[in-house]
Structure formats: C-alpha cells, structure tokens
C-alpha cells in the first residue's frame, strides 16, 4: 500500500534565472504540499520569489534563461520531467492559474466567450453548443450579471472586478483540482477585493480544489487561508496553520510583517512600523547564513544558524534558523 500522497507536492524546487553565464536562484530549495480542499497561502514581500514559485509549478518559464531543479509531484508525475505536449494536458485541466492584473491577463482582441471557451477546446470533447452552455454556467458561477451579453464583450468593456471574475472563470473552466492564484486581488479596489476573496472561498467550498494563494496581504491570508507559508528571499522561513501563525508567529520576518500591518494610531507619536532595508537583489543575495539577518542587525550574529534549516517547533509549525529565539524588535528589550 503506497503512502497517501498530497494533491500537489513541491520538493526542493530551485528556480534560477540566468545573468550572463550564471544562474541565480529566485526560488531556493522550496518544499511544499497542498492538500485537497485546502487554501495554502504563500506570503512575502515583493521580490521574494512567490510568483516565480507559481510560474515554476506551471512550467511557464523560458527554458533558455531559467534553470529549474527539484520536483513538482502531481498524481505521481513529476511535472518538471514532462515535455511541452504532456505539460499542456496538465495546464488548464489539472492546474488552473489566476493572475494578478485582470486587464493584462486577458487578450484585448478576443471576446470573453472565446477566451473562456479556448480553455475548454483543448481539454474536453464538448461541442460548440456544450461549450457555450459551460461558459454561461461559469460566468454565473463567478457572479457575472447578464452573462449572455457579457460573453460577447471585449475585456476593455468590463470593470476591473468583472475582468478578474472572468480570469477566475478561465481558471475554473475544466474544474482543475489545483488552482494557483497569484495575487488575485492586488490590482483591485478594497471592496472588490473582498468580493473576489469571498468568491474564491465559495468556489473552493463548491469544488473542493486545493488553492495556492499567493499574496503579500496578511489581511487576505487571515480571511481565507487554512495554512500559511511565509517566504523570504526565495526560501520558506515559516510554515504553520493560519490560526497558529497569527497567534504564535515565530520567525523574525513573520513577526516584522505582522508588526508592520497598519493599526489604528492611538496618539500622534504612533508611527507605522517598517522593516529595515529591502529584499536583496538576486545577484547580491548572500547564499550562506540566515538571509534575514542583514535586516535585523541588532540581533547578535551568533543567534543565527550557520546553515539555517526548517525546524518543526511544534506539530505542523516549522521555522527556519534559530534566531527567532533571541528576536526582539529594535528598541525593545529582549
């Protein structure tokens, strides 16, 4: 009897981009699992490798300038070993993807119907009439009013929220067991953001898909996710169920992120908390030692591990490096 496998398993994934003759890893040894009926959030600042992770799973990188190592296991297949033809059977059929910018991610010259229906053409035997019915069903599912009419429209004729619903409908077309949503709400108004998030939670309830939700918005995480992986500089630095992470954050980066959420300012002296510095660029990223150390210089150097690894500090709660044990915010006592 084989071991029960997760819906999607990412093992030691490394994605390197070519600069001249050298490859620099934007995703560095990331391992993840996604279960059925689960929303796994991946959080981190811009440039920490979240989106690269998503596109690596989909195999969308240009092989000339990227080098991908490791495994992405889906249904006992390592997707990274597949040729384009086989990969195309997985894309859109088993894994659907939702992108950030709802205007840019739709082809301006194609009607809504054609863009949704295109996904059905390659993965199903539905005839024209059945496809039409399915597109209508999808548009209804994602809450688009007057679908009969909207499907004849072009993307520029719809609002941002509507366009994102269409993007979601495209991802859902073939009822994929895995959905990867790359910052699906970032480009939208706050009110629309809430609607889109509700929609995604509803869809997940209905379909039982596993969703990887990539975001930099901890509010989004708290509202939707079941499990959270915090990424920093290409690595996962903390991973925990959502309640555990918010109640009991450990890694200095996670704590800094949570601390920098704007809260109600009580008096004029209250300031917004920021994290020192920025995510280092790929070429300058130190590949040894704790990658977050340069941004918390007040923490003694010897509290970091020499080669930080993920430690399971309590069931299902993993933290990288040992520096969390000594971490305090700048100016506070230990």
């Amino acid at each position: 009897m084989a071991v029960e496998r997760s819906l999607l398993e990412v093992n030691n994934l490394e994605t390197g981009f070519r600069f001249g003759d050298v490859y620099h890893n934007a995703v560095d040894d990331v391992s993840l699992t996604l279960e059925n009926n689960e929303i796994l959030a991946i959080v981190g600042e811009s440039g920490c490798g979240k989106s690269t992770l998503a596109t690596s799973i989909m195999g969308l990188h240009d092989p000339k300038n990227t080098e991908i190592k490791g495994e992405v296991i889906y249904k006992d297949l390592n997707l990274l070993d597949l040729n384009e033809k086989l990969y195309n059977r997985i894309r859109g059929n088993d894994i659907g993807m939702i992108f950030q910018d709802p205007l840019g991610s739709l082809n301006p010259l194609m009607t809504i119907y054609n863009q949704i229906s295109e996904s059905l053409e390659y993965h199903s035997d539905l005839n024209e009439e059945q496809r039409r019915a399915r597109v209508l069903e999808l548009l209804n599912q994602v809450g688009i009013p007057r679908p009969e009419q909207i499907m004849k429209n072009y993307p520029h004729e719809l609002s941002g929220g509507m366009r994102q619903r269409v993007v979601i409908a495209i991802a859902l077309a073939n009822k994929p067991p895995v959905i990867i949503a790359d910052e699906p709400t970032t480009a939208l108004d706050v009110t629309i953001q809430a609607q889109i998030l509700d929609l995604m939670v509803d869809i997940q309830d209905e379909t039982g898909s596993g969703i990887i939700l990539i975001t930099h918005d901890l509010g989004v995480v708290a509202e939707t996710a079941d499990r959270v992986a915090v990424m920093y500089a290409g690595q996962i630095v903390e991973e925990a169920p959502v309640e555990e992470l918010f109640a009991n954050p450990k890694h200095p980066y996670t704590r800094s992120l949570l601390n920098s959420i704007p809260h109600e300012l009580e008096d004029d002296d209250d300031e917004l908390h920021v994290i020192h510095g920025t995510v280092p660029s790929l070429q300058k990223l130190p590949r040894k030692g704790c990658r977050f150390a340069p941004r918390i210089p007040w923490i003694p150097e010897d509290s970091h591990e020499e080669n930080p690894v993920l430690h399971e500090i309590s069931p299902n709660h993993k933290v990288r490096c040992t520096c969390w044990k000594h971490f305090h915010f700048e100016g506070e006592d230990e």
């Binding site: 969308l60 859109g92 894994i95 991610s105 194609m110 295109e118 390659y122 993965h123």
Partner: peptide, 22 residues
C-alpha cells in the same frame, strides 16, 4: 512576455497556437 500570453499558456494552449491566436 505579456500576461495574456501567460494566461493562454496556463490554459494549456500549445505554443504554436499561442503564437497564431494570441
């Protein structure tokens, strides 16, 4: 490198079709 091409590829559209249709 546009996003709509990424969308098309993530639908599983073969690369030749991505070129001709998108």
């Amino acid at each position: 490198v546009s996003d709509y091409v990424k969308t098309a590829r993530s639908k599983g559209v073969p690369i030749q079709k991505v070129y001709t249709k998108h």
